[in-house]
Design a binder for these strands. Structure first.
Length: 275
DNA sequence: ATGCCTCAAACGTTGAGA
């Protein structure tokens, strides 16, 4: 059988609903991993995607974050959150003192499911904000927990992949101008070491082909004509185990979905498998 | 034209995104 799996940081599933439905109709993925729902689980448009044949495992709490898996080929063994997933404690909140115990918040950034012959995680890795920020330490901790969460499936016989917005450019070629990222997150050695740890666990970067230009960027800032100028970065990634990568027949970034008004700032990454 | 940022919560402004 052939299976088409995609990942897309949708930047609000409800603000983007018509774009999402349009893309599902045209690209016809069997499985779609979404990130940045910006929606509670209850407010997810389950019925609209069901009409196109998709079951959904959604995990969201509202304002930020939020992940989902849509599937037309089965949706079993759903897991929300990584085992042992670290939470984030905003330093400003923590400094407010003693009235309430400030607890780290476990954010909805990961959901897993088995879709037919494939098991997938849809992940939205923390941004990090600035090197040295508490959010950056949280990002590295989160990535370490991700590695631990997937090591068994990575070594397994079943096709398995982690798909999502990793907020890391794997190499300097994955940013349009490396000088712009001097001292910034997304390109540091520590973040790339986390990707190397995933590779050591048996997962490989499924490198997509671009539909235009010479490099498959997946994100372009809304500002300053970034998309028309192709000032992009590749941070939406697919890490598959050997049974997964050996089945890949094609992979591409659908930059067409980034064109026009009312789009996400990310483009979908599509992977076709011959299983 | 692919075109100069957008979203949600709260209802003017702020925080986040990367």
């Amino acid at each position: 059988m052939t299976v088409r799996i995609a990942t897309w940081n949708i930047n609000s599933v409800n603000a983007r609903l018509e774009k999402l439905l349009e893309w599902l109709r045209s690209a016809q993925p069997d499985v779609l991993c979404l990130q940045e729902l910006k929606s509670t689980t209850d407010a997810f448009p389950f019925e609209a995607v069901r009409e196109l044949g998709y079951e959904t495992a959604a995990h969201g709490t509202g304002r930020w974050n939020g992940v989902a898996i849509l599937s037309k080929i089965g949706l079993a063994d759903v897991v929300r959150d990584l085992p042992g997933q670290p939470g984030y404690l905003d330093p400003a909140t923590a400094d407010e003192g003693t009235l309430l115990p400030a607890e780290p918040e476990i954010e909805p950034r990961a959901v897993a499911a088995t879709c037919g012959p494939v098991r997938v995680w849809s992940v939205y890795v923390p941004n990090g904000r600035e090197v040295g920020h508490a959010h950056y330490a949280y990002k590295l901790d989160w990535l370490s927990t991700l590695r631990d969460a997937v090591v068994a499936d990575a070594a397994g016989e079943r096709p398995f992949a982690v798909l999502g917005d990793f907020n890391i450019a794997p190499t300097d070629t994955d940013v349009w101008d490396v000088a712009k990222f001097e001292g910034a997150t997304h390109v540091t050695e520590a973040e790339r070491a986390a990707l190397a740890d995933l590779q050591a666990a048996g997962l490989a970067d499924v490198f997509p082909r671009p539909l235009k230009y010479d490099h498959p960027y997946t994100y372009w800032d809304y500002r300053q004509l970034s998309f028309p100028k192709n000032y992009g970065i590749r941070i939406d990634l697919v890490y598959g185990n050997k049974p997964f990568t050996e089945a890949v027949s094609d992979s591409y970034v659908d930059r067409e979905a980034r064109k026009g008004k009312g789009t996400s700032d990310h483009a979908p990454v599509v992977v076709d498998l011959a299983l």
